[in-house]
Design a protein around this nucleic acid. Structure first.
Lengths: 100, 100
DNA sequence: TCCTTTCTTGGGTATTTTGCCAAATAGCCA
DNA sequence: TGGCTATTTGGCAAAATACCCAAGAAAGGA
């Protein structure tokens, strides 16, 4: 595989890796309904707040979400609504039993 | 996060994890053009054939591809063309620089 | 200033993923 | 059967991820 081609697929996979975790998919669904602060997401997810913060950092570095500080809270919001078409496709795959 | 909800997101993330590798994304693109045997994919990818075979196994277990044996060759083909709409979305994300 | 709340970062450990080699399996043909 | 090609599987070491705890940073109120 040629280097420039490889770079292209690596860029794609970086974004997909950010999506490849149940907690992060859950967070994206919640943010699709509207912005949430970290403490709200932490309550919904039910993990340590530092864990939730790190998941949010992964999604932000992938360019999927952004945040805004207001007071001592940080509100996150979805940047890419098209992620949900994609999730729709994934759900079609999960509904179809794998071969064998 | 409630158990049944968690199961749902775990199922989604299992499929997305299968997509989260540059070599596997490359293979999916090649299979979108038509079926290929392992040796053809190996030549295009340029990795050890056992590595390519394992990537194909990951994609198959996720329900994204299937295979057919003909003679002593194994031909793989794409099961889910919708994967490409979704790649289109990913490319939009990669074209937009991440915040900060 | 001090205390509280909210969030991020550092660090250690545990788990998962990756990629190569070597060995095993399977089909074809002589 | 023997040899050849195509592919999968086992195993291992290296790299990447995940999660919790503890510590740090930033904002607000007393």
């Amino acid at each position: 595989m040629e280097l420039s081609i490889r770079k292209h697929y690596e860029a794609r996979s970086r974004v997909i890796k950010a999506l490849a975790h149940p907690t992060r998919l859950f967070i994206l669904d919640k943010l699709a309904e509207g912005e949430h602060c970290v403490c709200e997401l932490q309550a919904m997810v039910g993990a340590d707040i530092s864990t939730v913060s790190k998941h949010l950092s992964v999604l932000r570095q992938a360019g999927l979400i952004d945040y805004e500080k207001r007071g001592n809270q940080v509100f996150y919001r979805l940047l890419t609504p098209c992620v949900h078409q994609f999730i729709h496709c994934i759900d079609e795959v999960t509904r179809t039993p794998a071969p064998e």
